[in-house]
Design a protein around this nucleic acid. Sequence first.
DNA 1: ATAAAGGTTAACGCAACGTTAATGTAAATA
DNA 2: TATTTACATTAACGTTGCGTTAACCTTTAT
Lengths: 254, 254
Amino acid sequence: MEYTVRSLAKLAGVSSRTLRYYDEIGILKPFRINSSGYRIYGEEEVDRLQQILFYRELGVSLEVIKSIIMSSAFNVKEALLDHRVKLLEKRTQLDALIENVEKTIARSEGRINMSNKEKFEGFKQSKIEENEKKYGKEIREKYGDETVDQANAKFRNMSEANYKKMINLEKELLDTLAEAFKTGDPASDIAQKTADLHKQWLLFSWSAYTKEAHANLAQMYVDDERFAAYYDKKQSGSAEFLRDAIYIYTGMKK
Amino acid sequence: MEYTVRSLAKLAGVSSRTLRYYDEIGILKPFRINSSGYRIYGEEEVDRLQQILFYRELGVSLEVIKSIIMSSAFNVKEALLDHRVKLLEKRTQLDALIENVEKTIARSEGRINMSNKEKFEGFKQSKIEENEKKYGKEIREKYGDETVDQANAKFRNMSEANYKKMINLEKELLDTLAEAFKTGDPASDIAQKTADLHKQWLLFSWSAYTKEAHANLAQMYVDDERFAAYYDKKQSGSAEFLRDAIYIYTGMKK
DNA sequence: ATAAAGGTTAACGCAACGTTAATGTAAATA
DNA sequence: TATTTACATTAACGTTGCGTTAACCTTTAT
């Protein structure tokens, strides 16, 4: 089956302008151009458009979508599972927002007057997103796009077995961190083992490990509420402890 | 308390550029401009900014936000409740999307190959549309959009405790219906109790109960196989019996 | 006295198309 | 067959909500 811009557009529920734009930015080129200069799409393009729209729905930028579907060894199911996880995260965010709104309503009913700081607390969720942007960008700036992209690519293509390994490592890391935290000494053997586990864990998603990057990430764990909350889950102060251990481990920053 | 651009920006977690932009488009003007041309904001502006960010989070355009907060008789609580309903709707949409993704994953596992049309069906929020077509449209036509939306919102937001109550009520309803059915008389006390239980049950998801709506729903139970099958589970003819009881209870339709 | 930190306006840049203009081609109808 | 209608093309500007940079002024800290 062959499609013109309009027919494919109708099939997919997008505008023909969108298809021309996708051609323009090279994310979806027609199978061929006929003698009158018309774009003609085939089955393969139909599938590809489906992929694109799938990710677009998520709010993924076309730039990123491009890199995703360009990777030849692209595993459909893995991508879908990934997609699903992101949607679930989005829903969690939404739920938090709804809770905030309801709280605010309750407060307005109770006529409790809020301090100015409190007034903006409802937006903390969005700050997390901001941080993500901020640090994502920071990493790109410091270590270059290649590192980040390679890391992503590596992660996407991770085999099932490796994924399990990574999960187990993470668990071990958290357990060891809890143990080490008890010693109170970031230079202790067990604390240093924690730092090493963290490095091992990192290697699953980082293609180019450097001590500097590792140390910087450790500081980020402390600065970013989201990460801090993750590591502090068991004991408050764990994030700082991990950072200190990593500083010693890498010999960076003091 | 007075704020400069930066201090207000920090308080609210936005950039100073954003505040200047909001000034530019007239959505948030500073309280005054000092002798050096600096923007100075006061308490009122803090509140207003909060309102703006609240709606912005929803994805409402600044243009619309402007019109919302410009309306002088602006009721805060009403706005919040409105805001909340929109968030709930958004969540419903997200849930539909997640279901679609999961279906697609399941299909990919079953290796069922889809026709091109089917491939794009996942994007049409098919479930919502389907339901809308089947029941929503009918209800919307009869009772108006508000009722339907409020009912959905109410349902989604039901507390755990209320949910259990509703489930218990439903069980009691079915038991009582079975009892009443034995009498064969839709006007009998127990049949009327059944109708009342049904109303109670309805109130969990209907925000505005009317006798007319109740009676119409009863007829729908008979007409629609899905509902009919549900009520006829124990005894065939229960759906009609319930309808007749409700007709008498509500005094509608003869 | 000077540097750092923060303020100002003005202007361009970005994503992902929508929209309009000017024009060529294919299919349906008179 | 002639014409209308439907659809195709490229080119270019418009949109939203700011980020970013430039060029410059003011306040505060040292």
